[in-house]
Amino acid sequence: MAELDKEYILSLTEQAEAGSPEEQYRAGLLFAFGEGVPVDLVLAHKWLNLAAMNGVAEARESRAEISMDMSPQEIAAAQKMAREWCLAH
C-alpha cells in the first residue's frame, strides 16, 4: 500500500480531534496499523475508545484486538488520554 498523503493524515486527525466519531475510528486504525504514521497503540486505543464511546461499534472490536498487544500501563495511558480529551471537549 502506498504511503498515505500527509494532507489526508492531517485532515483526518483534525476531524478526529474535532469530535467526528467516524474520523476517530479511522485515526485509531491509522495508528494501529502505522499507515503513513509510526505505529502507536496508545494513540490508536485512545481514538478507538472515543469512537466506541460515540457509537462506532467496529471501534469496540478493534480496541479489544489491539489491547491484547498492549501492557496494562499502555492501556491506562490511553484511557487517561481519552478522558482528558473528553474533559477538553
Rank of each mutant, 00 (worst) to 15 (best):
E17P: 00
N49P: 03
N54T: 04
I66W: 00
A52E: 04
V39F: 04
R26C: 01
E35M: 05
L29T: 06
W85E: 13
N54L: 13
A59R: 03
R83Y: 09
S67H: 02
M53V: 09
G19R: 09
A88T: 08
A64D: 14
A77Q: 14
W47D: 01
V39Y: 02
L10I: 04
L12Q: 02
R63C: 00
S11K: 13
Q79L: 15
R26T: 02
Y8G: 04
A57K: 13
A16R: 06
I9W: 05
G36E: 03
F31H: 03
R63F: 02
L48V: 04
I9D: 02
R63P: 00
E35K: 09
K46I: 01
L12I: 04
L43V: 03
W47S: 01
L4H: 03
A78Y: 05
E17L: 14
F33M: 10
H89I: 07
N49H: 09
L48D: 01
E84A: 15
P72C: 10
L12K: 04
H45L: 07
F33G: 14
H89D: 08
I66F: 04
A27S: 15
A57L: 07
P72Y: 03
P72I: 06
Q24F: 07
D40E: 10
W85F: 10
E74R: 03
W47Q: 05
Q79P: 02
A64Y: 04
E84F: 11
D69S: 14
E65K: 15
A16S: 11
E74M: 09
A18F: 04
D5C: 12
G28I: 05
